[in-house]
């Protein structure tokens, strides 16, 4: 043992540990700064951007209506996707082989065919089934009947096409989340007398959310932009509205910038929301003890 162990030592005698010199970082700063300056210069001086036109159309009534439709479609599609996803994921994890097979088939089909085709397919459903009805199949009586062209508007086609596809992706995300929960959790819950649905809703799902939320945030943000595909069935969402405007006034670049800025704004808001939700579902998992009440 060291002589005089336990005695106070002189701190000044201990060599201080220093950070290494960051030569490379200075070049990095210079490089990034140059690129940034060039981008800023272009934005401010290139007349092609036409910022005045951008400003003029940012709050245009048609643009705002398009945003409304984009948001509505995104929310509804994600709701359909989440509900379908939960049902399909639970079916797939169930012990029942028939349920598992159906779930597997659903994911296989709707993840395996392009959304564009699904959209157009739903939109043109009338050519396959001119009449939609509820009743006994194979020629039995019908309780309710409606013409397919009436039932399938561009909005319903977009909802069905995007929603079913999203359901297939969400099913996989939710399944992965459910599998990430320690099986001991479900057992402890069952042992306390929770019924199966309570075990799922109160114990397993909230813990799975920790793994479900980040990829779902990704899906929502992707979907917000992906709704623009619904313009192929002439739905007036943000992209379609902007197209309509520049087809008439030929201010293509400024109007694309209007759309891009709006998508960016919406995505930023969503990302902030996602951060809060992630924080909520990591309750009990942080390393630091919560501040004493």
């Amino acid at each position: 043992m060291h002589d005089g162990a336990g005695l106070p030592r002189d701190m000044a005698q201990a060599p201080e540990v220093l950070a290494p010199a960051h030569v490379g970082r200075w070049f990095g700063v210079l490089f990034v700064g140059l690129i940034g300056a060039w981008i800023l210069h272009q934005l401010l001086t290139n007349p092609g951007f036409q910022w005045l036109v951008v400003a003029q159309f940012m709050l245009d009534r048609r643009v705002l209506a398009g945003i409304g439709m984009t948001l509505e479609l995104t929310v509804l599609v994600m709701l359909i996707g989440a509900v379908l996803g939960i049902v399909v994921a639970v079916m797939r994890l169930s012990a029942d082989p028939l349920l598992g097979l159906c779930a597997h088939a659903f994911v296989w089909f709707f993840r395996g065919t392009p959304v564009l085709i699904q959209l157009v397919f739903w939109y043109n459903l009338a050519s396959l089934f001119p009449e939609l009805s509820i009743g006994i199949p194979f020629g039995g009586p019908k309780f309710y009947e409606i013409s397919a062209t009436v039932a399938i508007s561009s909005f319903t086609a977009a909802l069905l096409g995007l929603g079913l596809n999203e359901g297939a992706y969400m099913a996989e995300i939710i399944r992965a989340g459910l599998l990430s929960v320690d099986p001991g959790q479900g057992e402890a819950s069952k042992a306390l007398g929770h019924r199966p649905f309570q075990t799922f809703r109160v114990i397993v799902l909230p813990q799975a959310m920790k793994a479900i939320v980040p990829p779902t945030g990704n899906q929502v943000i992707g979907m917000l932009k992906y709704t623009s595909i619904a313009s192929v069935v002439s739905l007036q969402e943000l992209m379609h509205s902007v197209e309509d405007i520049y087809n008439r006034n030929f201010e293509t670049i400024p109007l694309l910038i209007v759309a891009a800025l709006w998508y960016l704004i919406l995505v930023t808001i969503l990302s902030v929301g996602q951060a809060y939700i992630e924080k909520y579902y990591s309750r009990g998992w942080t390393n630091s003890a919560p501040a004493a009440a």
Partner: peptide, 24 residues
């Protein structure tokens, strides 16, 4: 299962790995 849960409510179980609910 829903009937079994009624029986389980009267039987306490303690596990090797505790299995406390970490989110509560």
């Amino acid at each position: 299962e829903s009937e079994v849960s009624r029986q389980r409510a009267d039987i306490g179980m303690v596990f090797q790995n505790f299995n406390l609910f970490p989110h509560m």
